[in-house]
Design a protein around this nucleic acid. Sequence first.
DNA 1: CTGTTAGCGCCTTCAA
DNA 2: TTGAAGGCGCTAACAG
Lengths: 338, 338
Amino acid sequence: MPTIKDVAREAGVTHAVVSRILNEDPTLTVRPETRERVLSAAARLQYIPNHAARALRHAKAGAVGLAVHDISNPVYSEIIAGAQTAVASHESVLMLADVDELHRDASAFSRMITSKAIDGLVFLPAGTRADEAVLRAASSALPTVVVNDRAPGVHSVSLDDAAAARMATEHLISLGHRDIGVLTLDGDTHRRIDRLAGHEAALRDAGLRSEANWIENGGHTLESGRSGLHRMASRGPLPTAVAVHNATAALGAMRAAAELGLAVPRELSIIGFHDMSFTGFVTPALTVVRLALTELGVRAVDVVFQLIGGEQVEETSTVVDPAPELVIRESTAPVSER
Amino acid sequence: MPTIKDVAREAGVTHAVVSRILNEDPTLTVRPETRERVLSAAARLQYIPNHAARALRHAKAGAVGLAVHDISNPVYSEIIAGAQTAVASHESVLMLADVDELHRDASAFSRMITSKAIDGLVFLPAGTRADEAVLRAASSALPTVVVNDRAPGVHSVSLDDAAAARMATEHLISLGHRDIGVLTLDGDTHRRIDRLAGHEAALRDAGLRSEANWIENGGHTLESGRSGLHRMASRGPLPTAVAVHNATAALGAMRAAAELGLAVPRELSIIGFHDMSFTGFVTPALTVVRLALTELGVRAVDVVFQLIGGEQVEETSTVVDPAPELVIRESTAPVSER
DNA sequence: CTGTTAGCGCCTTCAA
DNA sequence: TTGAAGGCGCTAACAG
């Protein structure tokens, strides 16, 4: 690996000149001829500046962290993909961290957060204890932004959860359903509250009552969605339609419906949240509200970089473009007589 | 952020002493009293060594890269999760990169690979052009290991693809199927070749003929699995059972079966590859061969660190523990008369 | 127009 | 038992 000095020697100048030419220092005036020599020497030696040295000098890591619980969650992977491209456009790299590990292992935490290994942190909370602790510690040490939720005193970018949830429930209402249940998120998150509020607002606007028996936690996993519907069923007659505030949980709910001997959508309409890759491929294909997950990742990273750059940023922002969109497939149908 | 000098001043010693105490230099002898003063000063100031400075000094980044195509692919996310934990146990962090971006954007490539921002690279190939180019360039610059496949001249750790594929097909045979098709991977990968070989070996051992019409590319996505089965159907009568060499593609194939009006498993048995989270939740629940994906990620990272440490490592290794395991659910059934 | 110098924070001989 | 000094590779003042 050639260093800047090798290039300097090769071009017959000092390393300082090489640095200024390569970094296009505007205050520098050089003979085109010298510049040429330096450039070609750099190219010939395939010189690439050393990341660590730069980081040390600039007091900047050139990296942004991404703290997440469960990479295999498809919702997260879409956000991550957005973050990934955004980070690249800021000439940085993405470091992945597991929130639970950060919480469990102090050395992992310091390696990542407090050692200036990253310039900022994007945090995907799930509403756990670990979340709260890690987030508090991280945000006091670094520019931090919470994605897909809000947190007091921390910058965040989220989706219009209330509007999206309202859209889901209104779709069910428009199909004639009057008995509508909800499998909402669990965990202590704002998006849970907002989605539930959107659901209830839709009900209220339609003059429908929100039945306590039909409000249940569905979480964001297959199993939590499945057990959520089972719990609801165990409490009495099911509604004719259920809004599930997560697509993965919606698939779990579909499984539960099958286990209960209920035909979807004839006997039970199910609408999900997020247009994951599998939603169009299961049978019946899942009707969902599609949200701008990739954009969410992009925006979060943008905010982190604004913060790093010392800019003033609104503490909370919402991704409204692209807007939530109803994707009607097969899992919802007009209410039928029973 | 306190530096080592701040700690030294606070403890009334030189920064060299602090460094040696904190790093537990065995050649150092200090009065317990001094050590105590240094340790408590470090704790009081919450001193954390600067990552960049360490990296510069050690000529080590303290990070390992992970190059992947599609984070949202559940197969990958399980491997990534394994890699994540393994990296942490080596006191390092994980950097995420998109292969296609590395291929497209030279600056992204150099930022990651050639600037010593990472000490080694774990590469998850998908058999594309970009793969080949990126892998060649990376492996000449860094300790690199290919996961879930092999590549000439590069270290790799993979699964026992042939055995697993054989296991899948043998399950079908044991159910009495004699007309057995396969939806194998696409892309130019060794695992495709190995899985196909395992499939054909099972057929051969059972005295069954491998029918060209029943060998089709199913890829590793929902859509590729779906269109793969449709293509097979368009060429003539379908077999009574199909081994799909990827679980996601298997779900796509199930969708295609539904579109073709075929009941699974009564009219068509389907077995998938990899026990993804959704496999037990779709209806019918998918029978699969479970492979040690997490372990694969762990092992890959271990090999990278062996390489970084200058150890001699076998060029190719296979994860055989845990062994592939047949998980029988609902999508396969004994052949029925037609 | 280009070279010299200093220092980012850390670790590691070598001296004292 | 501890201090002093040098240098990892790079950038940014300041000289010349």
